[in-house]
Computed example of a mutant assay.
Amino acid sequence: MSRNPYDLPSLKMLKSFECAARCGSIKDAATELFVTPGAVSHQVKALEQELGVQLFTRRHRAIELTPEGWMLKDALSRGFFDMSRAIKSVQLRADPNSVTIGATTAVSSLWLTPRISKFWRDHGEITINQQVRDRPFTRPVSLDLIIEYRVSTPDEPHDVLFNDVLLPLCSPGFNHSPEPQLNNLAAMPLIHLDAKETNWTSWRNWFDSLQYDGDLSTRHRVNNYTIALQLAKDGQGVVLGWQRLVAPLLDAGELVVLGRYKSAAPGRFYLIHSGDENTVQTALVREWLLRNLN
């Protein structure tokens, strides 16, 4: 007798495998699923034993999908996407005035949330849910709208929100020379961002764009831009700032520009659509955001 009508392994096994396959890493899958790497590895091995096939070729600190793994990963990704869209449709029937927007922690707190507050002054009947994460959003896009910084143009329907400028920022009380040269700036305690998303410009990228290839100091290494900004506000060092994104902190005097050096960010901030403009409410939110960029 079948274990269930569809004769499937446990959803926990399938979800763990799909996440690891999509991320290309057991560790990153564990972060996304809020479990330990050992738990993900255990579920994947249990799935392999149940199916009687090897889904990953395991190498030092890396995993590669076998042909059978690719086949299962593609099927699961399509299936989870279809389930996500179906659930969203059910939720939309229950709350037709709901719109969901995805963004990083920094974009949410510094740019999006203040605008949502203003939006609600005129459209308080619309519920806006935010899905905040500091990892790339899965594809195909299942949310109504996503705000992403991209170096390359998105394949999905999109609008350009804004370009930005990168420059050093520090707290007003940070002890520094008012107009440091690049070599002096490089020797200051720099706050480095080690983000999973490689689109973000690093201190090394920024100095390279200004033709400086000397050594760089390190004060802190963090994996979240909001934490990096907080360390700078606390006087712990110099952070690489996105001038337009962090404008609220500059306007409030919590951070100040350090010196005269700056460079244009290589990418843009995009507003990505789900592709079907599924509700009048989504279209309204999108159009409002585009009209209220400043």
Rank of each mutant, 00 (worst) to 15 (best):
T57N: 15
L293F: 05
I26K: 01
R286C: 04
V246E: 05
G124R: 08
Q91Y: 03
L14R: 02
R61D: 13
S274Y: 02
A106T: 11
D155M: 12
D251R: 10
L284S: 04
L47W: 02
R268D: 09
F162H: 11
Q181I: 15
I126M: 04
R78T: 11
C23Q: 13
S177E: 10
H60Q: 10
L249R: 00
S98T: 10
L231S: 05
I116S: 01
V238Q: 00
I126P: 00
P136L: 08
N224R: 08
P157N: 04
I128W: 02
R221I: 14
N205R: 11
P140L: 03
L185V: 06
I63V: 10
V44K: 07
I126V: 08
P96Y: 05
F207W: 01
R204D: 07
P178D: 03
L185H: 00
L169K: 03
F119Y: 07
L11T: 13
E32T: 15
E179T: 10
H192M: 00
T127S: 13
G259P: 03
K45I: 13
W242A: 13
N199C: 14
T105P: 11
I227R: 14
P67H: 05
R139P: 15
S108Q: 03
R78Q: 12
D234G: 04
R22S: 11
E179S: 11
Q181D: 14
L182G: 06
M13A: 09
T138A: 14
V151E: 13
G214D: 07
H192Q: 04
F137V: 12
S89W: 07
V141K: 07
S10G: 12
L245P: 01
R260M: 07
P189S: 00
T138I: 12
K233R: 03
H123P: 09
V151S: 15
A30I: 06
L65W: 00
A39Y: 12
L229W: 01
R135N: 14
L255S: 01
L289T: 04
D7K: 15
V280E: 14
L112G: 04
E64M: 12
D144F: 05
V44P: 01
S171L: 03
F17M: 07
V107S: 01
D276N: 03
P154H: 01
M188F: 05
D251L: 08
W242M: 12
D194Y: 08
L161F: 06
D155L: 14
D95V: 09
K73G: 12
K118A: 11
L190S: 09
E50I: 12
P37D: 06
E125A: 08
R85E: 10
S263F: 12
L11W: 10
H60M: 09
V246A: 03
D144V: 05
L229H: 00
L193K: 01
L190Q: 02
S202K: 05
K12M: 07
P266W: 07
C23N: 15
G24H: 09
R221Q: 15
A20N: 09
S41C: 15
S89P: 07
W120Q: 14
L293N: 09
H273A: 06
I87S: 08
S217W: 04
I116M: 06
D74P: 08
F269T: 04
L185T: 05
Y270Q: 05
W288S: 05
I26G: 04
E32M: 11
R22T: 13
K88P: 08
T198H: 14
S10P: 10
E48G: 08
I272K: 00
P67M: 01
V35W: 04
